[in-house]
Write a protein that binds this DNA or RNA. Sequence first.
DNA 1: CATTACCAAGCAAGCGCTAGGTTTGTAAAG
DNA 2: CTTTACAAACCTAGCGCTTGCTTGGTAATG
Lengths: 204, 204
Amino acid sequence: MAANTKQSARLANGMEDTPRGRLLAAAAHLFRVKGFERTTVRDLAQEVGIQSGSIFHHFRTKEEILRCVMEEVIHLNTDRLRGSMDGATSPQEKLLRLIKAELNSIVGDTGEAMAVLIFEWRCLKEDSQKYLLELRNHYERIWLNVLEEAKQQGLLAPDRDVVVLRRLLGGALAWTNYWYKTEGKMDIEQLAQQSLYMVFGDGQ
Amino acid sequence: MAANTKQSARLANGMEDTPRGRLLAAAAHLFRVKGFERTTVRDLAQEVGIQSGSIFHHFRTKEEILRCVMEEVIHLNTDRLRGSMDGATSPQEKLLRLIKAELNSIVGDTGEAMAVLIFEWRCLKEDSQKYLLELRNHYERIWLNVLEEAKQQGLLAPDRDVVVLRRLLGGALAWTNYWYKTEGKMDIEQLAQQSLYMVFGDGQ
DNA sequence: CATTACCAAGCAAGCGCTAGGTTTGTAAAG
DNA sequence: CTTTACAAACCTAGCGCTTGCTTGGTAATG
């Protein structure tokens, strides 16, 4: 249940070049390690080497920083998820690609921001939640399309609910943020294979 | 990603009879809805109808309240998990019972405290984390014993890692706290069945 | 007459955020 | 080249408020 030992705080390539980007990257890291509430604007300022008041030249409120971190990571990973399926034809192949992509989002370079997205959700104002929920729905739609395709081809038991399946699988993958260590024995490839068992079982 | 519409804040039977128990039940509820940091001792006092200072007659610090909530829910649910297997013989039957028991913990009367256990973990001091982690290990041991039994009987593919399986399954079940609604179409029984697919697949 | 449960009042520290001034980088105008 | 202009980035200082928690006392129970 401890934080992963090493995860880059990067949200997107080249993001650290702009002051705003450096703040977002540092925020993703601190929000992950300490939580949004326990992270003060003074903590964040110290992390990037400026004074606390200077933050509000770039963001209007502390909550806006959180919202931007989440927005960036959803956009980035939605693009990655779409791109991961390029060239895949069978539902099995597509699903394995999706699982690998989501695992990389969660345990890879965007892992901290993904954890923030999950655990600091309640710290957002209601309208921010509404806006981000819409972005998340686009992400989930990609998954559901593939799972429905698999079911139509008879790859899943008839009484299996694809929406529930996606939610169970999503939970299983999100949870890896808690325990999976990149430097351990098992690599992402193997973990993805173990995860795929949860969809198709042994007789894939 | 919204909170469940209705979950009792009860942690254990008869707990609300003592002032301390009433505080813990209210704390579990508020910590779940607002988060530990955003819940003030004044919020908590108002919920049980006393003054904020009076809280510290029952608990030394706010963090101690959180630790007690978590400790209670782990103890209670470890007992429930053990008891759920009474009379079950086959690994399949045992696993279905375990899944049902854990689902009931998560979406039932201890749901709020379980969510607190998951999401407010970082708010604990290090020694509290260490202590509670030990209690959690006892809980996880029950699961692993059954999964290892299933594997020894050849019910799982040879290359399947039972520790990883438990973690994936645990994540899937924990996640239900986010989305499952008791008053929806699907009941716990059906949800447990869908979850069991993740262990044994279609050809159970 | 000790124990338990509580209240009333408030302290010291920390919080997000603001106001007003200073530095720095860039580029057109002279 | 130098000067002028200007915006972006940042600093200094601190305001107003909330926070967890303390203190010293009261009321009821057995």
